[in-house]
């Protein structure tokens, strides 16, 4: 186990270092959450008049939602890094060394979670600065961040598995788009649950994105039930383990095709 942790850490360092060299990428990474936050909260300002939001201020409602949205987008797209590594022969080079396949997967999952954590912190900081309230205080903020990081980690497992199965950028882009938008609309990220049609509410129960939204919104709004927060975070943790397992399996499947 220490070996697995060490190897994952070395691989995570590599990704972090390479990404930080991409100045434009870093700039967009920091600015993008701000764009989400401002555009959506402005667009939907008056929607709370419909009722069911648990607050009059859409910003309070949307802040945990946008942390989740940003996080699961980051996770869904993270497999692109694996496609690039496959193309450039980097994965193959590592496969002929003692590095564990699971270390390659864990480092990617951890990278997606770290990225979501950084972006989530920026979102929360800006949200608070422009007048949002988090009812659960500091612990509530941390819970929102953890929900986002688990969402990113969980979806990155799927994304890396798909990368290893398809191995093509164009297919990855199509798959990420195909998955991301429907899952967003089948959750309560943008609007209050009671406003969703019945069938959508029913489907959203099985949507991990919505688990994240529930875990993140509960501590953001008044009347927090911490048991609900803990349950959904637990569910997300299970989801993350499952998808990381899927990605590790995809690695073995990929190697069988070599």
């Amino acid at each position: 186990m220490p070996e697995l942790a060490a190897q994952s850490w070395f691989m995570l360092q590599r990704q972090g270092r390479n990404l930080l060299r991409e100045r434009v990428w870093v700039a967009l990474l920091l600015i993008q959450p701000l764009v989400w936050l401002v555009l959506y909260s402005q667009l939907f300002t008056r929607i709370t008049e419909l009722g069911g939001f648990g607050t009059d201020d859409y910003l309070d409602f949307f802040l945990p939602g946008v942390v989740c949205m940003n996080a699961f987008f980051a996770g869904s797209w993270s497999g692109m890094a694996t496609v690039t590594d496959l193309d450039r022969g980097v994965i193959e080079r590592f496969l002929a060394t003692p590095v564990r396949r699971s270390a390659l997967v864990f480092s990617q999952v951890a990278r997606a979670a770290t990225q979501a954590g950084i972006q989530g912190s920026i979102l929360i900081a800006i949200g608070l600065a422009i007048g949002a309230d988090i009812a659960g205080g500091v612990i509530g903020g941390v819970a929102i961040l953890v929900a986002g990081m688990l969402l990113a980690a969980g979806f990155s497992g799927i994304s890396h598995a798909l990368a290893l199965i398809f191995r093509r950028e164009a297919t990855m882009i199509a798959a990420a788009n195909f998955i991301a938008l429907p899952l967003m609309f089948l959750s309560a990220i943008l609007i209050a649950r009671p406003l969703m049609p019945g069938w959508m509410q029913a489907v959203s129960r099985f949507n991990p994105v919505d688990w994240g939204v529930r875990a993140a919104r509960e501590p953001a709004l008044p009347g927090t039930d911490w048991l609900v927060v803990a349950s959904y975070l637990g569910l997300l943790a299970g989801f993350t383990l499952l998808t990381a397992g899927f990605a590790t399996w995809a690695f073995r499947a990929y190697q069988r095709t070599l």
């Binding site: 590599r14 390479n18 060299r21 450039r88 022969g89 002929a96 003692p98």
Partner: peptide
């Protein structure tokens, strides 16, 4: 894997590092 070095036909270097 512990005993060998492998230099693949297509370069496997990390170009961003």
């Amino acid at each position: 894997r512990r005993s060998i070095g492998y230099v693949a036909q297509a370069s496997g270097v990390d170009r961003e590092a």
